[in-house]
Structure formats: structure tokens, C-alpha cells
Computed example of a mutant assay.
Amino acid sequence: MAKFVMWGSYCENALEMRGPYREAHLKGLSDQKEKGVLTALGPTVDNTKVFGTYEADSEEAVRQLVEGDPYWQNGIWTEYSVYEWNQVF
């Protein structure tokens, strides 16, 4: 399986805006983690960016996960990029 990184941005006031979607967001991430596709995900300390690492068959598979997340669907994540990653260490 290939490895990918995802960098994204949060909307302004993300901590306040995410409330109605947080439970579904965390459930989805837990499911992805259990399946082994999501290896890590979290915000930067200033809550302006999100970073995630994935092991998936394709970039498209990662994009489907991101775009299926309640944070993306409800504008909490405002943009993102996915890159195939060559993990050296």
C-alpha cells in the first residue's frame, strides 16, 4: 500500500463551528484507524491547519475519505491537498 500525507486548512472559528459535527467526525476517524487506512491525523497547535497520514491504494481513496468527512462536508476544513509520501524513516 502507498503512503500519503494530507495538509488542509480550517475555517475561522473552527473550534466553535465544529461542535455539531465533532462526534461523527471522530467516529469516522476511529473507523478509518481500525481499518488501518488512517495512521495519524490532527490539527496544528494554532488550529489553522490539519495534517494526516494514510496508507491506501490510491490518492483517490484518500480524497474520498477526506471529502466524506463531516468537517469537509460542513466547511470546517476549507481546503486540502494530498501527496504520495516516500517514508524514509
Rank of each mutant, 00 (worst) to 15 (best):
Y71N: 01
W72I: 07
A14Y: 08
E55Q: 13
D46A: 11
A40I: 03
Y80E: 07
Y54R: 05
T53C: 15
L26S: 05
E60I: 06
L26T: 11
Y21T: 02
E34Q: 06
S9R: 15
E55Y: 03
N13H: 14
Q64T: 11
L38P: 04
E59G: 12
N74R: 08
V45A: 13
V37M: 03
A14R: 14
H25M: 02
L38S: 08
A61P: 05
K33Y: 08
G68T: 10
E12G: 03
C11G: 05
L15F: 12
Y80Q: 07
D69Y: 10
P20T: 06
N13R: 12
Y80S: 11
T78P: 05
Y10H: 14
P70A: 11
R63Q: 15
L41F: 05
E23L: 11
W72F: 12
L29Q: 10
P43K: 04
G42D: 03
E55H: 06
I76S: 02
L38T: 10
G36A: 09
G28R: 04
I76R: 09
R18W: 09
E12M: 03
D57F: 01
A14H: 09
T44D: 13
K35T: 10
S30G: 01
G19C: 01
V50Q: 07
Y10I: 06
G68P: 06
G19Q: 10
A14D: 02
A40Q: 13
T48W: 00
V37W: 01
G52P: 04
S30W: 00
G28A: 04
T48F: 01
G36T: 01
D46Q: 04
T44Y: 03
Q64E: 14
G8V: 13
K27P: 00
E60H: 08
H25C: 02
V50E: 01
A61V: 10
P70W: 08
S30Q: 09
G68D: 02
E55C: 11
V66N: 13
T53V: 15
K49N: 15
P43M: 02
V66M: 15
L38M: 13
W72V: 00
I76D: 02
E79A: 15
G19D: 12
T44R: 11
S58E: 14
D31I: 04
V45L: 12
D57G: 15
T78V: 15
V66A: 14
Q32D: 12
F51N: 11
L29H: 02
Q64P: 00
L15S: 12
P43R: 02
I76Y: 04
A61S: 14
W72K: 07
V66R: 04
T48D: 07
G36K: 05
G68C: 05
T48H: 03
E79T: 14
E59K: 15
F51T: 12
D31K: 06
V37Y: 01
W72S: 02
I76P: 05
Y80L: 13
D46T: 06
G28I: 01
V45S: 09
G36C: 04
T39I: 11
N13F: 14
P43Y: 06
L15Y: 13
V66K: 09
K27N: 09
K35C: 00
L38K: 11
G19M: 08
E67A: 05
E16S: 12
L15P: 00
L65K: 08
Q32C: 03
G28C: 06
G8K: 08
N47M: 14
V45G: 03
S58N: 13
E12P: 01
M17Q: 15
